[in-house]
Simulated assay, not measured.
Amino acid sequence: MGGNPEIIPQVTERYAIAQAPERWGICDGSSGGNCAFTVAWLRPDKFRRVIGYLSSFAQIPEGNPYPALISRVPRQPLRIFMQAGHRDLHWNEPRFNWLAENLRVAAALAEAGYDFRLVLGEGGHSPNHGGVLLPDALRWLWRPDQD
Rank of each mutant, 00 (worst) to 15 (best):
M1A: 13
M1E: 09
G2T: 10
N4C: 13
E6Q: 08
E6L: 12
I7Y: 09
I8E: 12
T12F: 02
E13W: 03
E13Y: 06
E13L: 10
R14Q: 15
R14Y: 06
R14P: 03
A16I: 07
A16G: 10
A18W: 07
A18E: 15
A18S: 15
A20H: 13
A20Y: 00
R23Y: 05
W24Y: 04
W24F: 08
W24M: 13
I26F: 06
C27K: 03
D28C: 05
S31Q: 05
S31A: 12
S31P: 00
S31Y: 15
G32V: 03
G33P: 01
N34P: 01
N34Y: 10
C35S: 11
C35W: 05
A36D: 07
A36R: 07
F37T: 03
F37C: 08
T38P: 01
V39K: 03
V39D: 00
W41H: 07
L42R: 14
P44D: 06
F47T: 11
R49I: 02
Y53A: 05
Y53K: 00
L54T: 06
S55Q: 12
S55T: 11
S56A: 15
S56V: 03
F57R: 01
Q59M: 10
I60C: 09
G63W: 06
P67C: 05
P67H: 06
A68C: 02
A68V: 02
L69R: 13
I70A: 02
I70K: 00
I70Y: 02
S71V: 00
V73C: 05
V73I: 14
V73F: 10
P74F: 10
R75W: 02
Q76T: 04
P77L: 10
P77N: 10
L78D: 14
R79V: 11
R79I: 09
I80V: 15
I80R: 06
I80E: 06
M82D: 07
A84Y: 08
A84E: 04
H86V: 03
H86A: 13
R87K: 13
R87T: 12
R87F: 15
D88V: 00
D88A: 07
H90V: 01
H90C: 09
E93S: 09
R95W: 14
N97C: 12
N97E: 09
N97T: 11
W98L: 13
L99A: 08
A100F: 02
N102I: 00
N102T: 07
N102L: 02
L103S: 01
V105L: 10
A107C: 02
A107T: 08
A107S: 03
A107V: 01
A108R: 00
A108Q: 01
A108N: 01
E111D: 15
G113L: 05
L118V: 01
G121D: 15
G121Q: 04
G123V: 00
G123Y: 02
G123A: 13
G124M: 10
S126V: 06
P127R: 08
H129P: 00
H129G: 07
G130S: 12
G130C: 09
L133E: 15
P135G: 11
P135M: 11
P135H: 12
D136I: 05
D136L: 09
W140G: 10
L141Q: 07
W142F: 13
W142E: 09
R143Y: 11
R143A: 15
R143W: 07
P144F: 05
D145N: 12
D145T: 05
Q146F: 00
Q146R: 14
